[in-house]
Design a binder for these strands. Structure first.
Lengths: 267, 267
DNA sequence: CAAAAGCAAGAGCACTGCTCACATTTATCT
DNA sequence: AGATAAATGTGAGCAGTGCTCTTGCTTTTG
C-alpha cells in the first residue's frame, strides 16, 4: 500500500519470495541428501519440512529428476571448488604436491559429503538420466584441473615414461606399428583410445600427445577408484584407510610423474 | 490318495514346491533387476508376475533386503565364476595372459550384466546394509583370483619393481625408515596400509610382502575403476571403449607385471 | 480497477513395503 | 484313522511415495 517504487524494483516481493523458496528447497534437499541419501529424496518430505502442502512444491521444482539435476550440478561445482582450492595453495612448480593436493582434495570432499559423491560417481539413480547439456560441463571441471597438471608436468619435462605402463611411444607415429602390451599381450592402440579426445576443444590447445593423456586417464581412474572403493567400502573393513589411500595416491601419481624428479630417459 | 510311499520321499510335495517357488522368485527378480534396475525391485511386482497375491511373497522372502542379499550373493558367484572360467583357460605360466583374462572376464561380465555389476560395485542401495556374514566371503572371490596371480608372478620372479609406483622396498624392514613418495611427498607407510591384510588367513599362507600386495591392490583398484567408469559412463561418451579399456588394463597390469619379461633389477 | 498470472490447498490415482487376521491345505503325532 | 500342528494362500489395511487436477486466493500487470 504505502510502498513506494524505490523499494519495489522489478524483482517484486513475489519474485523475491520465489527465489528464497527455491533456495530453501535446495538447502533442505541437501540436508535430506546428507542424512538419508539420494534415493530417499522425497519431494513430499521436503515440502513437509518447508511447511507447505505436498503438491505445492511442484510450483518450484518441476519434478524429482529436476531436483536431482540441480543437486548434481551443485555437487559438481562444490567438488571442483574443493579440489581447486586445495590445488591452488601449492606452488605451481611443486608438481607432486599439486597431484597430492588434487587427490586429497577429492578424497576429503568425498568423505565429508559421501552422498554427494555417490550422486556424482556412484551408480546412476534409477529412472534418472542426467541431462548432458546441464551436467556435462560441470562434470569435467575437476578432470580439467588434472589435465593442467599433466600439461605442466610435460612442459617441465618430468612426465613419467609411458613404457612404464606398457604404453609404447611409437604408437603415435604409425598406426599399424602398435606397441606390444605387457609381455606378449595384444595390441594397444593409443590413438584409437584417446585420439578423439585430443581433437576435443578441451584438449586441442594443450598439445598433449596420446600417451600423456592416457597416463592422465590412468591416474584419474586409479584415483577415482581409490576414493570410490573407500566411500563404498568395497574392500570390506580396511584397517588404515588413510595409509591405503596414500599408497594408491602415490601409485596413481607415479603414472604421470617421474618418481625421482629427473627426466625419464636419463640413467 | 493312491500315492504310495515310494513316490513321496522325505522331500514331500510341499518342500519341493517351496524350493521351486523360491527359485522362481529369484529368476523373476533377476529379470526385473536386468530390466528395471536394483532400486526399482518391487516385491509386489514379483508376486504379481508369479500370479500370487502381494502379501503371499512374504512367505518365501523375509523382506526386500533379504531378496537383495540373495541377489548380491548370487551375483558375486556369477561374476567370480565368469572371471575364473576366463582365467583358467590360459596356461598358468602366461602371466600377462592371465591378467588380461581376469580383466576382460570382469569387464565382459559387467557389460553383460550391468545391473548386477551395479549391485556389487555401485553405490550401496539406500537403507540396505549388506550383511557381512553372507556377502563377505563371496565378495572376495574374484580378488582371490588376482591374489593367486600376484603370488605366481612373484614366484616366477617377474613382479614389477615397486619403486616404479613410488612404493619403497625398505618400508618393510624398519618402520620409521619410510620411503619418500613421489618427489618430496610425505611418507608412505606400506605396512600400516596393507600389513593387517597380510595377517589375514586369506593371505597368511601366501607369504606375500606388503609391497607386492600393494601392487595387487593398485591393479585391482585401477581395473575396477576402469570397468566402473565405463559401466557408469563417468567419462561421458567415449569414442572407442574397447581401446580405452585395453589401455587401462595394460597400465593396471604393469603395476604387478614387469613389462619386458625380465626381473626388475636387471638392466 | 479489472484481467492475468502466480500460488496455496486439498482431493485423488497408482504405486511401494509390510502387517495382520482369516481360511485352506499339507504334514505329523497319537 | 483322527486330532493337531505347521505351512501356505487371501484380502484388507496402514503409511509412505511421485504426480495431476480442480478450486479458491493473492499478487502483479495492463
Amino acid at each position: 500500500m504505502t510502498a513506494d517504487a524505490s523499494t519495489a524494483p522489478p524483482p517484486g516481493k513475489r519474485a523475491r519470495n520465489r527465489a528464497a523458496v527455491e533456495a530453501e528447497i535446495l538447502v533442505v534437499a541437501r540436508r535430506h541428501l546428507a542424512t538419508e541419501g539420494a534415493a530417499a529424496l522425497s519431494l513430499r518430505a521436503i515440502a513437509r519440512d518447508l511447511g507447505m502442502v505436498s503438491s505445492g512444491i511442484y510450483r518450484y521444482v518441476e519434478s524429482r529428476d529436476e531436483l536431482l539435476t540441480r543437486l548434481i550440478v551443485d555437487s559438481y561445482r562444490s567438488s571442483a571448488q574443493a579440489v581447486r582450492s586445495a590445488h591452488d595453495v601449492v606452488p605451481a612448480d611443486d608438481l607432486a604436491g599439486r597431484w597430492r593436493a588434487i587427490g586429497h582434495g577429492l578424497r576429503t570432499w568425498a568423505l565429508r559429503h559421501p552422498h554427494d559423491f555417490t550422486l556424482l560417481y556412484g551408480s546412476p539413480v534409477p529412472d534418472y538420466e542426467a541431462p548432458a547439456d546441464r551436467t556435462g560441463e560441470p562434470g569435467t571441471a575437476v578432470l580439467a584441473i588434472l589435465v593442467t597438471l599433466v600439461v605442466d608436468t610435460r612442459d617441465a619435462g618430468r612426465l613419467a615414461d609411458p613404457d612404464q605402463l606398457g604404453l609404447g611411444v611409437d604408437s603415435t607415429a604409425t598406426n599399424d606399428t602398435r606397441h606390444q602390451a605387457v609381455a606378449a599381450g595384444p595390441a594397444v592402440d593409443l590413438d584409437a583410445a584417446v585420439g578423439p579426445f585430443l581433437r576435443d576443444p578441451m584438449f586441442a590447445s594443450t598439445g598433449l600427445d596420446p600417451a600423456a593423456l592416457a597416463q592422465g586417464l590412468c591416474a584419474w581412474t586409479l584415483l577415482l577408484g581409490a576414493v570410490t572403493s573407500e566411500i563404498f567400502g568395497q574392500l570390506g573393513p580396511v584397517p588404515d584407510p588413510d595409509a591405503l589411500f596414500e599408497v594408491l595416491l602415490t601409485a596413481a601419481g607415479s603414472t604421470i610423474l617421474s618418481a625421482n624428479g629427473l627426466p625419464p630417459t636419463s640413467p
